[in-house]
């Protein structure tokens, strides 16, 4: 499907969190009052005001004594978004698909979900949408449609210094994902995969069980 794609190569991510902060900056999202909870991952989870979150997870490993996986988590912009299927049952076109990019956009109409929001959230295989407790509006990554439609990169991709988070048209992104996957297989073995590559516009390359990167990966 044409339109825009991301490649997220977790093997190149240093968890600098440029993407997480750039997202907040562009979207003028307020910071949450956090505490250190025994992890560098902060805020602890996605929220109405946090569309993108870098997740940190440590595991024992054989060669080195441990591995530390970083996963910049946000909406996958599904090709056939289950969240929209569910949402359309309650409020038609509260969630829309942008023609040019394929971005999945949550409109203000999402506040009409009310207590059905939980069903919408559950419909998302990656546990992405979040509702504002006060207004009921639901939010998530919108692919920086306001930037992309002006020919700019999404704020996250623009900020990524390592080449872990890349954005572009379908063909070059798919090619890049394949090339990176081949490299990763050589270096890290056959567990390397692109998560759900036929279903989403965000192509995550992981080299271990995807659940080790995020419960909802």
């Amino acid at each position: 499907m044409p339109g825009k794609y991301f490649v997220v190569d977790t093997t190149k991510c240093t968890a600098c969190r440029g993407c997480q902060v750039a997202c907040k900056q562009w979207n003028k999202l307020p910071a949450e009052e956090t505490k250190n909870w025994g992890s560098h991952q902060n805020p602890q989870d996605l929220s109405y005001n946090t569309y993108r979150l870098v997740r940190f997870n440590e595991y024992p490993a054989v060669v080195n004594s441990m591995v530390w996986y970083f996963f910049t988590d946000a909406c996958r912009h599904c090709l056939y978004p289950p969240c929209k299927d569910e949402a359309d049952r309650y409020v038609k076109d509260a969630i829309v698909i942008d023609d040019a990019t394929g971005a999945i956009i949550y409109t203000d109409k999402t506040k009409g979900f009310g207590d059905k929001f939980d069903n919408v959230r559950r419909a998302c295989p990656y546990d992405i949408p979040r509702q504002d407790a006060k207004t009921g509006v639901v939010s998530k990554c919108h692919m920086c449609l306001d930037r992309v439609s002006e020919g700019l990169l999404p704020a996250c991709a623009k900020s990524c210094p390592t080449g872990a988070l890349v954005f572009g048209d379908e063909e070059p992104m798919k090619k890049l994902a394949e090339a990176r996957l081949a490299e990763a297989k050589k270096k890290f073995g056959d567990k390397a995969e692109i998560i759900d590559s036929d279903d989403v516009r965000v192509l995550y390359l992981v080299v271990d069980d995807k659940k080790k990167y995020a419960q909802s990966a």
């Binding site: 969190r17 997480q20 902060v21 907040k24 900056q25 307020p30 910071a31 949450e32 009052e33 956090t34 505490k35 250190n36 560098h40 902060n42 805020p43």
Partner: peptide
């Protein structure tokens, strides 16, 4: 800077 503090809020 709130966005940075949000990421690393406290002495550890």
């Amino acid at each position: 800077q709130p966005w940075l503090l949000e990421c690393e809020p406290q002495m550890f």
